[in-house]
Amino acid sequence: MAEALLTLEGVHTHIGEYHILQGVDLVVPRGGITVLLGRNGAGKTTTLRTIMGLWKPSRGTVTFDGRAIGGTDTPTIAQGGIAYVPETMAVFADLTVEENMILAARQGPPDPARLDWIFGFFPAMKKFWQYPAGVLSGGQKQMLAISRAIIEKRTLILIDEPTKGLAPAIIESMIGAFAELKRDTTILLVEQNFRFAASLGDQVAVMDDGRVVHRGTMAGLSGDETLQTRLLGLSLDAHQ
């Protein structure tokens, strides 16, 4: 296994009086896609938000690229090279696609070559460049949210359920984009759609009740139906 880029050790996170993460141990190796699976409420989104500093861990350590980022504030974590695509996509509806991208590019105006590369995956972004993000369709908003995360080179991208609510044709085009992306960047992907996850993932971790209950390669999990049933149960079929 490649060197670890991100490591969570015994991470606990409380939201108000609720104890959501109860000792998460997770290793994301440098390069490729690590998929985080698990049923609703298992703590996947909270894990991503904890990595991003949007919730503070109450116990445990988060190490990214050799530095502890457990108590660090969100902007510093982002500047350290982590990009985040939340489940809600959080595109700025009032801003145009262009303005969304301008803000995502911290170093200065977006690099034209990089933009063309992105337009290659998501032609719609070029087409609607001057439109307010609020008028885009759900799939296009998702594309914008991902484009924002990759407009400049980042070390790690956290993506929360990008296929949720999307039509199969869009999911297909997204698989292509992710396959291209992972050659360039490490991705931690939360996903409910097992087929999508299986076609992209290199490593996999399965969460349940605020803990990681299984870690291994995606190939190993895809090939072992008993393991799938035990870890993921019937909930998978509901999402296929």
């Binding site: 991003m52 949007l54 504030d73 969100t74 902007p75 982002a78 500047q79 990009a83 985040y84 939340p86 959080a90 700025f92 509806a93 009032d94 801003l95 303005e99 969304n100 301008i102 803000l103 995502a104 911290r106 924002r148």
Partner: peptide, 21 residues
């Protein structure tokens, strides 16, 4: 850019932080 940040922040300040501001 400052204005864009303000408008974006009014909409979703958390995401503005997640972008590194």
């Amino acid at each position: 850019r400052l204005g864009l940040l303000i408008r974006a922040g009014v909409e979703n300040s958390e995401m503005v932080e997640a972008l590194g501001y």
